Amino acid sequence: MATTVDRTGRSPLHPLHALLLAFPIALFACALLSDIAYLKSAEMQWSNFSAWLIVGALLFGAPVLLWSAASLFRRRRAPESRRAPAYFLLLLVMWVAGLVNAFKHSQDAWSSVGSLGLALSVVSALTALAAGWIAYGGERIAR
């Protein structure tokens, strides 16, 4: 499998950063799918599964967010990327929406995945996908 490389010969992301970012993308997207499955079937286990997926996404998303913040502040002295602030903001929105969603999913099953729970899952999944799009897009944003 080929890795995208920029003009200086470096890959766009540090390999550990790229690996950690893959988890929130996949887990938030799967949580959205399990929320939809719960709304279609009313099977309580889908809500439980979604709650665990959200917690996993938050656990892996926290170091990605911190890495992005450190990279953003380090770049203030030598700005190399215009995408870094957007990437950081997307990760921040993803993580905060995911945290609120985790609290929402801790309620009983039906109230956890009502309109607010589903909306938070959509926001978390879409911002994770958008952050992944920026991160894996080729321009180096976080070392």
Score class of each variant (00 low, 15 high):
S11V: 10
T127F: 14
H17A: 11
F88D: 02
Q107P: 00
L90Y: 08
P79C: 07
K40N: 11
S50L: 01
L32P: 02
G9I: 06
P79K: 13
A22I: 02
P85R: 08
S50D: 04
G56D: 03
Y38K: 02
A26I: 11
W52S: 11
A62S: 15
M94G: 02
A31Q: 05
L66G: 06
F88A: 13
L120A: 12
S47Q: 12
V113S: 15
D35F: 05
A78T: 12
L99G: 14
V93R: 05
P63I: 08
W110S: 12
W95P: 00
I54R: 06
V96D: 01
L126Y: 09
H14N: 14
S106L: 14
A51C: 03
G117W: 06
L90M: 13
L20A: 14
E80N: 10
S41G: 07
A26S: 15
S47C: 09
L91A: 03
P63E: 07
N48D: 13
A109G: 04
S47R: 14
S41W: 05
T8C: 00
A62L: 15
V5Q: 09
R75W: 03
L58S: 06
A84V: 14
A29K: 00
L13E: 11
R74K: 15
W46V: 01
W52K: 07
S112H: 04
A22R: 03
S81K: 11
R74C: 00
R74Y: 11
L116R: 08
S11G: 11
V123N: 03
L116A: 13
V93L: 15
V96I: 15
T8M: 04
F49K: 01
A109C: 05
I54W: 02
A31G: 10
P24A: 07
S11C: 04
S81A: 15
K40D: 07
R75I: 01
S81C: 10
F103W: 11
A86V: 10
R82D: 12
K104F: 03
A26H: 03
L99A: 15
Y87A: 10
I25V: 15
L66V: 15
Q45N: 06
S111N: 11
A57P: 01
S11Q: 14
K104D: 04
M44I: 09
Y87G: 04
A37N: 06
P12R: 07
R77Q: 12
F49S: 05
Y87K: 06
D6L: 08
L27I: 01
L120C: 09
P79G: 10
A31K: 01
A97D: 00
V64E: 01
L72C: 08
L90V: 03
Q45L: 11
F23M: 10
S124H: 02
L59S: 11
S111T: 14
N101L: 15
L27S: 11
D6R: 08
V55Q: 06
F23E: 01
C30R: 07
S81R: 11
S112F: 04
L90F: 14
K104H: 09
A31N: 05
G114S: 12
A42S: 14
S115Q: 07
L59I: 15
A37S: 14
P12D: 04
E80F: 09
F23L: 09
P85F: 07
V5G: 02
Y87C: 00
Q45I: 09
A109Y: 13
S111Y: 03
S112G: 14
G61Y: 09
G61N: 08
